[in-house]
């Protein structure tokens, strides 16, 4: 089978992976919170997209921003009401809190949506070019993932709130002294991460069937990608996601799909030893 096909599979999958990890990386890097809710946020985004699509027939591309805003509001509220109370506590405390919140959200989703796999069936067909077959819905998903990633990059780089987020990430005390409302920035960061997760969920619903028990899988992927790519920035998630997608794609063909995921974890372990900041991570965020 063609090298090009394997590579293309990996790149498309990798971009989608980046989309999963970006919010997780942001919260981890800025808030030093390992957000166990992240996987469930993605699943929630996916379900909301599915139900909006199934009841109205509107294209998920249009539903995506609405779902993303809904997740933004939810994320802001959760951070402001709960996580901010303990955000300066050791990482284990916030991990336990988000783990508890995750169990509540996960089970609520199972109760209301059931665990039945749902799929937004667009079935746009596929494109065959240069010996590579690629489904159109995946290409759209990839496009959306790149647009979202680019937007977040711009927001962090150029907007006032983005600069404030970067400032808080660099030095919380100094940022507070400069008049930045740290709690508000924390809540906003968490909300942006939830927004990205919701958008990722919408993208995923177009490509993969959504079911609640994927939340742990998504969380695991986000974790590996952050370690491979590095924390705190958009580029880390993108590099980590692409690396993992391509590694899994080639490993799936060479050593079999059963071992592809193991190879991803082995590379993560290797990087932890030789390059704890990740491939492009900022020093101090290892």
């Amino acid at each position: 089978m063609g090298f090009a096909q394997i590579l293309a599979n990996g790149v498309v999958l990798g971009t989608l992976y980046a989309c999963i990890a970006i919010g997780f990386s942001l919260v981890w890097g800025v808030l030093n919170v390992i957000n166990m809710l992240h996987g469930s946020f993605i699943v929630l985004g996916g379900y909301l997209t599915y139900f909006a699509w199934a009841s109205t027939g509107i294209s998920p591309v249009i539903i995506l921003p609405v779902v993303a805003v809904a997740l933004f509001v939810l994320g802001y509220a959760l951070q402001y009401l709960f996580i901010n109370k303990v955000v300066t506590a050791p990482v284990l405390t916030t991990l336990t809190l988000t783990f508890g919140l995750d169990m509540i959200l996960y089970n609520l989703m199972t109760v209301f949506f059931t665990a039945t796999p749902r799929r937004v069936s667009l079935d746009y067909g596929r494109i065959d070019a240069l010996g590579v077959s690629m489904p159109v819905d995946r290409l759209i998903g990839m496009g959306l993932a790149l647009v979202l990633t680019g937007l977040l990059f711009l927001v962090l780089k150029t907007s006032r709130i983005g600069r404030a987020i970067v400032a808080v990430r660099m030095d919380r005390e100094a940022a507070a002294l400069m008049g930045i409302r740290v709690n508000h920035i924390y809540a906003t960061t968490f909300a942006i991460a939830a927004l990205m997760a919701g958008a990722a969920g919408a993208v995923f619903a177009m490509v993969f069937p959504v079911t609640t028990n994927l939340s742990g899988v998504f969380l695991g992927k986000a974790f590996v990608i952050c370690v491979i790519g590095g924390l705190g920035g958009v580029s880390g998630a993108l590099v980590g996601g692409l690396a993992l997608g391509i590694i899994e794609s080639f490993a799936g063909v060479i050593v079999g799909p059963q071992n592809a995921i193991t190879i991803g974890f082995l590379i993560m372990l290797f990087l932890l030893i030789v390059r704890p900041t990740g491939l492009v991570g900022v020093k101090g965020y290892e």
């Binding site: 899994e248 063909v253 079999g256 799909p257 592809a260 193991t262």
Partner: peptide, 20 residues
Amino acid sequence: EELYPVGAIDHSAALSTIKS
């Protein structure tokens, strides 16, 4: 004849091989 792990969320690699 291959198995995929419980956490697999994508089957591109295996199915591309099967196609060939």
